[in-house]
Each structure stands twice: as C-alpha cells, then as structure tokens.
Design a protein around this nucleic acid. Structure first.
Lengths: 329, 329
DNA sequence: CTGAAAGCGCTTACAG
DNA sequence: CTGAAAGCGCTTACAG
C-alpha cells in the first residue's frame, strides 16, 4: 500500500495525498478528510525509508553505550536508555544502539558512515574522548550524557559535584569530621566531579580533608576489602562510597567483620540505585532521576537536530537522602 | 559524493559503478579496479537509505528488551546485546533497540510498522507472548532468545533444563539429599525450565524431591529472608538459588546469621554471573556463555532473513562449576 | 562487458 | 486549492 495506491483510489494526485497526510501546504479540508479517512481505513503507513531518501532525515538517533560497562553501571544505562527510548518514541524517532569502548569506536563510525542516524547520544564521556572528536569532525549533532571540557559540546549531566558538596557538608555538620572517600576509576569524568564535590564540601565548611583518607582507583573486591581495613585502622567516622556498587562492597565487608552500622561506623554513598534502597540499615545517599536524565538529553538532541537554540550545559537536580546509616546514636 | 559523481568522474555509467562496488553482475577486472580505487580515494560510502529503497532491505535488525528487567537480568541483557551487536556488525547490520513489557509492545510495533528492520530478536519470552503473536501475524522474521511453546518459532536458549538436571544430580551424588530450591517468577519460561531440570535430576537419581523445599515466586529481600529461615528450620543440606541474584541474597542472609558455608550449609546457583564469581567462598553454579547466545540468535535470524534453512531450536551448552560452597567437609 | 532506463515510495518547488 | 514533474541515491532487468 503506497501513496500511489491511495491517489489512484481517490482519483487525486499523489502530491495531494502527500500533503493531506503530512499537513504541509494548502489543502481543502474536505479532501484532507477523505484522504485521512481512507488511509486510516486501509491502515496505510508511509515508508520511512522513502521519506528518509526524500527528506534526508532518518528519524533515527543512536545511543552509544560503553562496552566495558560493568555491573555497576548497568542499572544506570538501562534506566537512561529507557528514558531515551520513551522520549524518542514520543517524537517519532527510533533508536539505534552502538557499543563502543574508550579506544574502539568503530561501532559508532558504522552508524554515522551509513548515514543511518540524524544525531547521537553519548552515554558516557571520557577524558580525551574519541567519540566526541570524531563527531565534531563529522559535524553530526550529538549530546553527551556526562560532562566534558571539550568546547561547544552540548551536555547533560547529573549535578554530581553540587550533590557531593551538599552531602559532604551535611555529614560534617553532623560532627562526622573524619570522612573517608572510596572511589573508582579516576579517568571517568564523573568520578572526578564527585571527588571535587567532596573537596568543596570541606572547603565550604572551612575544614581541610585528610588526603590519606581519599582512595581513588579502587577496583575489585580485594582492593576494596584492603581499603576498608586501612580506613578502619585509621578510625574514620564515616566511609563514603563514590557509587552504589562500591558502597555495596563496603557494606558487605563491614558486615563480614561483624561491625554494626551506624553504631560502629557510618556509611554513605554518592550515588543511589535499587541495590542500596533495599539495604538494612537504609543508606544515606544522593539520588538522581536517571530516566529523566535520558529524556532531557534526548530533548536537547532534538533541539540540535531541528536547529533550535539549545542550552549547552544542563545539570540535573538531585535529592539528598539522609538515612539510618549515618545516624548519630 | 554519490554513485553519479563517481560515474561522471570516471566516464562510465552508474550501472557499472554500482556493479563494481557491489560485486554483482559481469564486469571487467580493470574497470572494477579503477572504480574501487577511486571510491576508496574519495572515501565513498553508499547511502544505506537509497540502497534500502532500491532493494527493500534495511540492513537493520531490532533487539527487543524487556522494560521491566530488574537488576538481576541486566548483566544478561547487556552481555547478550554485546553478542548481538558484534555479530550484526560482522554481517553489516545495525541494531535498533526497542523496549517492551509483557503487556505493552507499542515500541516493537513502531519499528515494524515503520519498516525499519528486516527482522527482530526477542530478548525474553513470556508465557502467552504478545510480541510473538504480533510478529507471526505480520510474517516478519524473528528469533527468540529464550524458549517458547508456540509453533514454528525459531528459538535459541541456554539449555537450562539439562544443566539443572546435571547439577542437581551431582549434588545428590555427593550425598546432599535434602536440596532446597528458591526461585523467582514462575511465569517466566526460563524459571519453569530450571524447575523441571531440578525435578529431572531427582528422577534420574531415582529419588523423590520434598515438595515443601521448593519455593517459587520468591521476590524481594524480605521474602527471601523468610524463605531462608524456613528452610534452615527444616534442616536442608543445600539451598539452590534459581539465579545469581537470588543466590546472592541467600548468601547475604546466611552470612548475617553467622552461618559458615559450606560447613553449616551448602549453597549453589542455577545461573552464574560476575556477582557470584567473586564471592568467598566460591559458589557452585551453572555457567552459560551469554555473549555466544546472543551471537547465535543473531546468526539464526540472518538465516531466516536470507531464506536459508534454519534450525528451529538451538540449545546452548553449559559448564557445571563445582566450587567451595558445596564442598563436603 | 557496458549502458539507458525504469523503478523503489516518498517530497517539494513550480506552475496553474 | 491541486497536479505534473523532478529529484532523493541507489539497483536491476533488458538490450546490445
């Protein structure tokens, strides 16, 4: 069933059919009604391919996902992707998925070189980001989910830094002075932001953090275990996990050592997912709306694609959830 | 840069250019070389859209992912998707993502009605699967990842049943007679297969399982905790978690109760991911190659799309990993 | 071995 | 308000 078939059946030109369906150009109300009704009757769906060729718009976007994402990030990407697809659907777009790593962006290149997308969403940013460099050179619209220093990049991110500043400040205010921070890979922009937020929190309180209590690049069970032991020896008041996975490992280790939270030691997290939500005791953390993050990034991308003015940097709000794990007894 | 530009530049017809590039139809070696060289020089990439319109093949497939997937399934889908995209890329296909739920398949319908894909991969099967029904009616090629009873559906799945039979058999052989099974949602085909494998294991050993030790539809921390308590009162020898997440929760509960594994009680899992790999003690489990599962499903789909004969049911192999958690002391 | 021409299913100036 | 025609960038019988 094509536009030609409809035109023939209704004894009008396909130009008219096209106009009736698209709503562009002058057309009498009566013919439009006729066309719409008939199209609806026969359940006509225009060929997206033919439309693409004629208009050079694909109505597709690509979501670029890091291949090396471990289990930590999965809830994030899954939820984010959900936000993206639901917004895309609303705008009549479909979404391609492309998996890349920090070093290998061939998957992304395929999508671009085959001209299958009108724009891209980068799910993670790297320091020295190859995907960003490539897309800037190709002049294809794209939005990053996550921050970057690169000039002229439209970016949407959780306001990690401000959130971490606030949470750190609140903990200090409670009288917890010896705060320890355990973080992952410091080449991720997000981890740096969180670290800076932590430092800002101290600065704002007029205090100086003990550098020896800040552990970055802590990966894997064994390293976390060792770090936790170190910190306990130093008699810290509270251990902050930079993300929910690290925090979860910290909790596991403390439980194994028969320590009670918050009686023996306090725990908090700079990121929150369902892992932590169901913990006993409940864990103090920062909470972000990741689905909304995805939707917002998607909106920015459509602004870019359609040539509307677009806000270069968007930082998403957060909630500070003060829970049992940091309660002063 | 189009095929016309090349034709003009080289003083040949675009028919010839097309033939040289595609490798179809007779063409002299010399002209082919010339065309190839020039195309390479100017970094010519054919328009995928134009090709689609001319051949009515999109070179796209869709990966349909359940929206309601919780954190349990994420490593599975992520890894599976990786397998799919890498195989798809190898065959020059790109992959759309579509999120559906058991009750809402509008995302899938969009993709199909816009004719944006040559075929679909269903990431999960349901009893009474709406997506399967829809795709069968539309006569679009598709392959399910996961089993289904529906006639004529090409499916690829882990051989959960055989694996569970083997693992159950091995545990019984070790003299662990009172095996408890804790499983999730029994409307998922996969969970039924695992349950049946468990029953088969007993049958093959000439034994009868104690039905009161089989708990299905156990969801959430609280329910698992309660179930574990019940089972301990019944003095079971070993608790089997039907998947890695349930098993992980079981472990957490046992640790909280100060029980030692395997001294006080044995634990095993019918599915394995990195969560369990890093556990101490190491956990006896079934191990599947999920990336390969995705790749295989993708291959079947291409067979279907290209009209090659295709094996209707493929069951993927597994390994039984006997680890510390079931060691007889 | 090569080319002219029609066709894939739309959109959109241009003319009326 | 409506239509004839050209065009988007390819592929593929058909003819030579």
């Amino acid at each position: 069933m094509t536009i030609d078939d409809i035109a023939r059946e209704l004894n009008i030109s396909k130009t008219t059919v096209s106009r009736a369906l698209s709503g562009k150009g002058r057309i009498s109300d009566s013919t439009r009604q006729r066309v719409m009704a008939y199209a609806n009757d026969v359940n006509y769906k225009p060929s997206a391919i033919a439309q693409s060729l004629a208009t050079s718009r694909t109505m597709n976007i690509g979501f670029v996902m890091p291949n090396e994402a471990d289990i930590v990030d999965m809830p994030f990407f899954q939820t984010c992707l959900w936000g993206v697809t639901s917004m895309a659907t609303r705008m009549d777009y479909d979404v391609f998925i492309s998996m890349v790593s920090a070093t290998d962006i061939t998957g992304l290149k395929r999508l671009v070189e085959n001209s299958k997308v009108d724009g891209l969403l980068l799910g993670r940013t790297y320091t020295n980001d190859k995907a960003i460099a490539y897309l800037q050179e190709r002049k294809l619209p794209f939005v990053t989910i996550g921050s970057t220093d690169v000039d002229g990049v439209v970016q949407v991110d959780n306001n990690d830094r401000a959130g971490c500043t606030d949470l750190t400040g609140l903990l200090l205010l409670k009288g917890l002075k010896k705060l320890a921070l355990v973080g992952g890979d410091s080449t991720y922009v997000v981890n740096n932001n969180r670290l800076n937020g932590f430092l800002d929190g101290y600065a704002r309180a007029g205090l100086t953090p003990d550098e020896s209590l800040i552990h970055m690049n802590v990966n894997g069970m064994y390293m976390i275990e060792k770090t936790v032991h170190d910190l306990l020896e130093k008699r810290v008041d509270c251990i902050i996990g930079m993300d929910d996975s690290i925090c979860n490992s910290i909790l596991t280790n403390l439980v194994k050592m028969n320590l009670s939270i918050p009686e023996d030691i306090k725990v908090a997290s700079f990121f929150n997912t369902s892992i932590l939500d169901h913990n006993k005791p409940s864990v103090t953390s920062l909470k972000f709306d990741v689905a909304k993050l995805g939707m917002t990034a998607c909106e920015r991308l459509f602004d870019l694609i359609d040539g509307r003015p677009v806000k270069p940097v968007t930082l998403m709000n957060y909630e500070v959830l003060m829970k049992e794990s940091t309660q002063i007894m």
